[in-house]
């Protein structure tokens, strides 16, 4: 999974990341620096180089939005920020939301697949002392498993809400809210491509998390979000991606039937 989700950072990428240090040096140039950083991060995200995108993100000082607003006011008084600065700030927050969801998924994945305690084995023909020891280890194991379940449940809540933050980003993830007179068509096109690339993936990851943690009824409700006219998420899915998504919903539904519930997880009446 990790290989499919993550591409390695090259030496060329490293040069681009280092260049950000120079861009953020001068506060009066922060708006420009943010636009350049966004452009670099867009490219990294498009190539699934999330680690590289995150490195760029971390080079942008955390108070940059305030710096941009303050610098604008120094030079232009109370006039509102230009559309392209506003859009850049919004894009920066969209990228942050995405990177946070991605990190949360990686943490969840590690915890789910690698941190699960292993049940101790009792050798055949074990003597009394070994049996007593084993019993003790079994008890410890039970405690660890319940601890693991507890923290899994917390991590699951965390990753679910962070992925929802991307899917339900107010007025759409990576959608500009202000139109510019001289729109940068290349940038607009890249934003569209990123929506098509990242949003179906995020939806599938969310399904994976919910399904693996047996929250099957929550899986089915995902259909409401994807199909909603308000959020328009279905429009960024290709036909084959929709088909794959429906297959996944079917898998969850079969699990619900197995629990003697109806296909959407409701109690079967009569």
């Amino acid at each position: 999974v990790t290989a499919a989700l993550e591409a390695a950072t090259s030496e060329e990428d490293r040069r681009k990341i280092r260049a950000i240090d120079w861009l953020v040096f001068d506060e009066s140039q922060r708006a420009e620096a943010l636009k350049q950083s966004n452009a670099v991060m867009r490219t990294f995200l498009a190539m699934k180089k999330h680690a590289a995108a995150k490195e760029v993100f971390e080079k942008i000082p955390s108070g940059s939005v305030d710096v941009i607003n303050r610098q604008w006011q120094i030079q232009n008084g109370s006039a509102p920020l230009p559309a392209e600065d506003d859009n850049a700030i919004r894009e920066y927050i969209c990228i942050q939301t995405f990177l946070m969801a991605h990190d949360a998924f990686n943490d969840w994945f590690t915890h789910f697949h690698h941190n699960k305690p292993h049940r101790p084995k009792l050798q055949e023909g074990a003597n009394f002392t070994e049996k007593v020891k084993h019993e003790h280890r079994e008890q410890e194991y039970e405690v660890e498993v319940s601890r693991w379940h507890h923290s899994l449940s917390l991590q699951t809540d965390d990753v679910v809400s962070k992925i929802y933050n991307v899917l339900l980003f107010p007025d759409g993830w990576m959608v500009d809210q202000r139109m510019e007179s001289d729109e940068d068509e290349g940038r607009t096109h890249q934003l569209d491509l990123l929506r098509q690339l990242c949003l179906p993936t995020m939806a599938l990851l969310l399904h994976t998390v919910l399904h693996e943690t047996r929250r099957y009824a929550d899986c089915m409700v995902l259909a409401d979000i994807i199909a909603s006219e308000q959020h328009q998420l279905y429009t960024v899915f290709r036909r084959d991606e929709l088909q794959r998504f429906l297959q996944k919903l079917r898998d969850s539904s079969i699990q619900l039937l197995d629990q003697n519930l109806d296909p959407l997880g409701y109690q079967v009446s009569s």
Partner: peptide
């Protein structure tokens, strides 16, 4: 008739199935 939420999900999956067809 029993649950509005169930009706919504049935309709939503139905919509996605329509969009998935050729």
């Amino acid at each position: 008739t029993k649950y509005a939420a169930r009706k919504k999900t049935l309709l939503s999956i139905s919509k996605l199935a329509a969009l998935a067809s050729d």
